[in-house]
């Protein structure tokens, strides 16, 4: 067991040699000083260890958000918040495990809102809980989806796509957000499109788009923006009620002229995207703990230090309270039968 000294030496050298670390240490330090923020009483979390589960492997958006938020949330709660990656079943393994966790707030997870909501509504195999079972703590980021075409494809605008003769979408798999979005877009906008599944991850599907193997894909705006700015992909449509700030010239789904049924589908799709990346707890969190967590998370994501860190990583915070999320869940539950039907059809079509 020769592991102890080098690590400590590493850390002390790190701290000693580089003066500019002070702020960074502040960000990750596991200070146990009591919460300074007002609001909910969080004495029950003092000195506890709270696990924030990321349902994917390290790297990528969910992991980044969790790691940005964890130290600040820890300070607010007066406890240590530890990020754990638990990859499996496209994020569902961790969610199902969370369902079985003791509902005391010491086990939380950042959730793939679109994927889980879509799967839950479609009744996908592997989601062994209802969406409204979850204790919604707050959404930390919206997941504004954008529809892009590769620079090597012949498509430059949405109109080109509507006239397309077999537009091919890349998708990472049945039931993934890129799969649900693409299938519903085909249905809402009524164009000749098909979805190619079987890409290992968003990295591989993005490469296929850039290479021109497929025509385009849907994806998170914040992870697509690099490729758009580099000219490797053309943005065609933002899946939201209004245009994105960074893409003022790209139309939004909400502003299109659609028939009644299509409009209802589009609204549900936008609602689903609004789910974004929420932090959730197991079912049956006691009221006092839930309100403490909600307040603490809100305090964390409004903390200027966290916002600066998030900005630096290009992971913008977009807050939606737990109560608003509960409302959204209710609305999605009531979503039109047509929407649920389309989702289910997409899941089954493969």
């Amino acid at each position: 067991m020769f592991d102890r000294k080098p690590t400590r030496a590493a850390f002390s050298a790190l701290l000693g040699a580089i003066a500019l670390m002070s702020t960074a240490c502040d960000a990750v330090g596991t200070s146990t000083e009591a919460s300074a923020g007002g609001g909910g009483d969080c004495s029950m979390f003092e000195g506890e260890t709270v696990t924030l589960v990321v349902p994917y492997s390290p790297g990528g958006g969910y992991d980044s958000y969790a790691r940005i938020i964890a130290p600040h949330l820890g300070k607010e709660l007066g406890s240590e918040v530890v990020v754990e990656n638990e990859d499996g079943a496209g994020g569902l393994l961790a969610m199902n495990n969370l369902m079985a966790a003791t509902p005391d707030g010491t086990e939380l997870a950042i959730m793939n809102g679109v994927g889980v909501a879509g799967g839950a509504l479609a009744g996908a195999e592997g989601i062994r809980f209802a969406l409204d079972d979850l204790s919604m703590i707050g959404r930390v980021a919206e997941q504004q989806a954008v529809f892009v075409a590769g620079a090597k494809s012949p498509y430059r605008t949405l109109d080109d796509v509507l006239k397309a003769d077999g537009f091919e979408f890349a998708s990472t798999g049945v039931g993934a957000a890129d799969f649900v979005n693409a299938n519903l877009l085909i249905e809402i906008l009524d164009f000749d499109g098909r979805v190619v599944t079987g890409f290992e991850g968003s990295d591989e599907s993005e490469l296929a788009v850039v290479r021109g193997d497929v025509d385009g894909q849907t994806g998170d705006l914040d992870s697509r923006i690099e490729a758009i700015e580099a000219g490797d992909e053309h943005p065609l449509l933002v899946i939201d009620t209004k245009r994105a700030d960074v893409l003022p010239d790209v139309p939004a789904l909400g502003e299109l002229d659609l028939g009644q049924r299509e409009r209802a589908l589009a609204e549900s799709l936008i609602d689903m995207s609004a789910f974004g990346r929420p932090i959730v707890g197991p079912p049956g969190l006691p009221e006092d703990r839930l309100s403490c967590l909600r307040q603490a998370l809100h305090n964390s994501v409004t903390n200027p230090k966290l916002l600066a860190a998030a900005k630096k990583e290009e992971r913008p915070i977009s807050w939606l309270s737990g109560a608003e999320l509960d409302e959204l869940v209710g609305r999605l539950g009531d979503a039109s039968a047509a929407f649920q039907q389309s989702l289910r059809a997409a899941h089954e079509r493969g």
């Binding site: 067991m1 102890r4 690590t7």
Partner: peptide
């Protein structure tokens, strides 16, 4: 050592 390095220091 296990507790200190894996549990406490690195979590």
């Amino acid at each position: 050592v296990l507790w200190f390095v894996f549990g406490e220091l690195l979590a």
